[in-house]
Simulated scan of single mutants.
Amino acid sequence: MQSSAYGASLAGGAFDLESFVKQPQTIVRCLSWLFSIVVFATITAEGYVNPTTKADVKCMFNDNDSACSYGVGIGVLAFLACVVFLILDAYFPRISNAKERKFIVIGDLFFSAVWTFLWFICFCVLANQWSKTTDSNAGDAARAVVAFSFFSIVTWALLSYFAYARYRQGVSEFDQEYRDPANDHTTPYPPAQYPSSSGPTGYQQSPFPSRQEDPGNYQPPAY
């Protein structure tokens, strides 16, 4: 079995673009990147309208500029984060230090969980403000923003799950307790015993038996 660390093989292998693109985490991250573009680009392009005059435009969500600003801010930061984490995912197998991999996985997990919550707030705020809006001139754009805010909750929740799975996999592989073979009684072979420097503690009989000769019955050999 090939050794791995936090969901990726150990450093030294060549980068495989095809397998990287087919990874579920890469696909979901690209979807999150696309959804964030739809949200902040739609609000920026069509989110500020005023049917009477162009001098004083208002947010299409119940004239609440804070709702539009919040959606744009969350979308832009999500867009930048997806780009950064995509680069890290591509470079991840080349990182040889397990601690550096752990920091990246924890950062991915923390950011994905926080942005899942922030997208949930964004969806609730925009849906609530749109339900109170009387002017429906930008109805299609507003409904698209609300819908893709909800889709972003799902994708960022999946990214949190993938990051948590990689973190658990890394912990199970690297946080093993080391056991000294000299003190580990579960090993099939006992530790070797070496004589101490103070000298032998007792006499051991030679493995070759010796004849006991009686000096009184000595007979010289005949020539």
Rank of each mutant, 00 (worst) to 15 (best):
Q2I: 01
S3P: 04
S3K: 03
S9D: 05
L10E: 06
L17H: 07
E18Y: 11
S19H: 08
K22N: 07
S32T: 01
S36I: 05
S36A: 14
I37P: 00
A41K: 11
I43R: 08
I43M: 13
T44F: 12
A45Y: 12
Y48G: 10
T52R: 13
T53A: 15
V57S: 08
V57I: 13
K58P: 08
S66P: 01
Y70G: 01
Y70R: 02
I74Y: 06
L77N: 05
L80N: 04
L80A: 15
V83F: 05
L86E: 03
A90Q: 13
F92P: 01
R94A: 09
S96N: 08
S96F: 05
R101S: 00
R101N: 00
F103I: 02
G107R: 01
G107W: 03
L109D: 00
F111C: 00
F117R: 02
F117K: 02
L118Q: 01
L126V: 04
Q129F: 06
W130G: 07
T134E: 12
T134I: 11
S136D: 08
D140H: 14
R143E: 12
R143I: 03
A144F: 05
A144S: 14
F148T: 04
A157N: 05
L158M: 15
Y164F: 15
A165C: 12
R168W: 00
D175N: 14
Y178D: 06
D180M: 03
H185Y: 14
H185V: 12
T186D: 12
Y189L: 06
P191T: 12
Q193Y: 14
G202N: 13
S206Q: 11
R211W: 11
Y218I: 09
Y218C: 06
Q219H: 14
P221S: 08
P221V: 06
A222V: 13
A222Q: 13
